[in-house]
């Protein structure tokens, strides 16, 4: 909700104040009925009893959450122990998304900085070049990545051609392939917010640091980086959050061994597992994690705004 403040620009007026509620009604009704109510129903489903082959029985149960975290019911006669299978999958999702975020930061930060220091008329064109791939179908991009990374694919051909390696390296169906896929899918999300904050940065601060004989790297680290931190954090969140719940990259690039939480959820509804309450509970765990990250971020942004003013 960090964007909420940004959307309320100064050009806002009250010309259509009387019609306000009527104008908002369609979006309230539509999003309420088809987004908010479904999310609430998902929460309810996660506390119901599963029925054989999909669907639910309307009977309260915490079995789905128990299954996610423990080897038996938390309130049974025997003490429950932590069951690591699903926590491991969840942990792997965090790890994979984190690795993809770091990769994206390593490439995205210099790119954003470079674009923001171009002449003003040239910047929109660069930004446009970065955004185009985002609008290409994610499925097609993931399939292209699969095609690129194959053992006999263009990447290996290229590396062998340049003499860097002699035999093709197997990237596909590894954790690294998934990280590359996630990195590739969400890289534009890293560049855009960092670009926006570097563009607003006042370079006379860097000049002052240079006058005091700070080297370029020290200036970057000690002067620029603290000033553009909100943009960097925003970029990291925009890459991390969709990576966490992604389904296509682990499914197409990771093979069967490199399951992430998105694949686990999908299997409960589309695959053979067919345990709807468990799928709903896993979705709730993912959603809670994402909301916590977003809330911390919103609080940080609010704090940064207060400090700035």
């Amino acid at each position: 909700m960090a964007g909420g403040a940004a959307s309320g620009g100064s050009a806002a007026t009250d010309t259509y104040k009387e019609a306000r509620n009527w104008l908002l009604l369609p979006s309230w009704v539509y999003l309420g009925a088809f987004v908010l109510v479904p999310v609430i129903m998902m929460l309810i489903y996660s506390f119901l009893t599963k029925e054989f082959r999909g669907g639910v029985v309307w009977e309260f149960s915490t079995a789905a959450y128990d299954q996610f975290f423990f080897d038996r019911g938390l309130f049974g006669d025997e003490p429950a122990r932590i069951e690591w299978t699903y926590i491991t999958i969840f942990w792997r999702s965090i790890w994979q998304a984190g690795a993809a975020t770091l990769l994206a930061l390593a490439i995205g930060f210099p790119t954003a900085y470079f674009i923001a220091t171009r002449p003003e008329q040239a910047r929109p064109m660069w930004v446009f070049l970065i955004t185009i791939p985002y609008w290409v179908n994610l499925l097609i991009r993931t399939v292209s990545m699969k095609f690129m990374l194959r053992d006999s694919g263009p990447l290996n051909d290229f590396l062998i051609g340049t003499g860097l390696i002699n035999d093709p390296i197997s990237i596909i169906n590894t954790n690294f392939a998934v990280q590359l896929g996630l990195f590739y899918s969400y890289l534009p999300f890293m560049v855009l917010p960092i670009y926006a904050s570097v563009e607003r940065y006042n370079f006379s601060l860097s000049e002052a640091a240079a006058d005091l004989y700070a080297s370029k790297w020290v200036t970057l680290r000690r002067v620029l980086l603290p000033a553009v931190k909100p943009g960097v954090i925003a970029g990291c969140i925009l890459v991390f959050v969709p990576s966490m719940g992604s389904f296509l990259a682990p499914d197409l690039l990771g093979g069967a061994k490199n399951f992430m939480i998105g694949s686990l959820i999908e299997e409960q509804f589309k695959g053979n597992a067919g345990n709807w309450p468990f799928g709903a509970a896993a979705s709730m765990v993912l959603l809670s994690m994402v909301l916590i990250v977003l809330m911390i971020f919103a609080r940080q942004q609010a704090k940064a705004e207060k400090e700035a003013s």
């Binding site: 909700m1 999003l31 088809f34 987004v35 908010l36 109510v37 479904p38 999310v39 129903m41 998902m42 489903y45 959050v241 969709p242 966490m244 719940g245 992604s246 389904f247 998105g262 959820i265 999908e266 509804f269 709807w276 799928g279 709903a280 979705s283 993912l286 959603l287 994402v290 909301l291 977003l294």
Partner: peptide, 17 residues
Amino acid sequence: LPLMVPEIVLAVATLIF
């Protein structure tokens, strides 16, 4: 909201609905 909820979670919620 549709931008903040992970896509797979929105998919699950919609299907359940």
